[in-house]
Computed example of a mutant assay.
Amino acid sequence: MKKNKILFPKKVALLLGAAAVLLLGSTVGSTRAALTYYSENYSAQMNLKHIGVSLVENGQVVSSRDYVSGNEWSGNTEGKLLANMLGEKEKFTPGKQYDEAISVTNSGDIDTFVRVIITKSWKDKEGRKNAELSPDLIELNVPENSGWVVAEDQSTPERMVLYYTKALAPGETTPGLSDTIRIDESVAQQVNKVTDGSTVTYQYKYDGYSFNLDAEVDAVQTHNAKAAIKSAWGVDVSVSDDESSIGF
């Protein structure tokens, strides 16, 4: 089942401080916990009793959605990632690692396999994405041996596609697909030289921009998993005989 953005060098310190303040505003991102529709091809083989997922950040549920039947949903909530990344009065520091453990809880009543799509981007004050700024500078660390695998062939610098390889029982929560987030310190070193007559100024490339994290969660039934995953996610997987794990 498919779920569902000055003069130099005299003002260097001042400018870096301003850059840190601007990046502070970028600690707010958005998140979607989405269950998309199940495949009609397998509706007869599915237990539609209750399928649901909750996105968890640092131990707290951020978003959730539970599918009941037809167009009926329950427990539909949507929050924001990174909202509590900094402590009170704490200033954001490029290069520093911040806790960012993202996991998934099966809030439904049937065993499922889950997939998460993480999208990283830079946006201006109006929320418009700037495709010329590098999402590679937004570093979300994926720990080893967590049960999560990154589908490299489906991923890009902006988009990470991760699969949890074990079946997730009702009420169970996965290990974190990430543990920390870090913005490469080079973000404060990328400047453009602007010459206007005898005046030379340096403009920070990322000045005025914020970094953003989106997460989309999908849940697929374990029953007839190979066919259901192919239909829902369009990927071929191997499934253990007891339908408790998948492989790529």
Results as ranks from 00 to 15, higher is better:
Arg182Phe: 04
Ala167Asp: 04
Leu140Val: 13
Val191Ser: 03
Ser186Leu: 08
Val150Asn: 02
Asn145Met: 03
Tyr202Lys: 04
Leu177Gly: 02
Thr156Asn: 05
Met160Gln: 10
Lys205Gly: 09
Ser155Cys: 07
Thr174Gly: 03
Ala188Ser: 15
Pro143Ile: 00
Asp136Asn: 09
Asp207Leu: 15
Asn141Glu: 12
Ile138Pro: 01
Tyr204Gly: 14
Val150Met: 15
Ser155Lys: 02
Thr173Tyr: 08
Gln203Ile: 12
Tyr206Leu: 14
Gln154Ala: 14
Gly171Pro: 03
Gly197Cys: 07
Gly147Lys: 08
Ile183Pro: 03
Ser186Pro: 06
Leu162Met: 15
Asp179Lys: 04
Asn192His: 08
Trp148Phe: 11
Glu158Tyr: 02
Pro175Arg: 07
Pro175Phe: 02
Thr165Ala: 06
Lys193Phe: 04
Glu172Ser: 04
Val149Asp: 08
Pro170Val: 06
Leu137Ile: 04
Gly176Gln: 01
Lys166Pro: 00
Glu139Met: 11
Gly171Lys: 07
Gly197Val: 08
Gln154Phe: 10
Ala188Tyr: 11
Ser198Met: 01
Ser198Gly: 00
Ser155Pro: 06
Ala151His: 04
Asp136Ser: 13
Val150His: 00
Lys205Tyr: 09
Ser210Tyr: 10
Leu168Gln: 14
Thr156Cys: 03
Asp184Gly: 06
Ser186Val: 08
Thr180Leu: 07
Gly147Asp: 07
Val194Cys: 01
Tyr204Thr: 05
Val149Cys: 00
Asp207Trp: 15
Ala151Leu: 12
Ser155Gln: 04
Leu162Pro: 03
Val150Gln: 09
Pro175Lys: 14
Glu185Asp: 11
Pro143Tyr: 00
Ser198Cys: 00
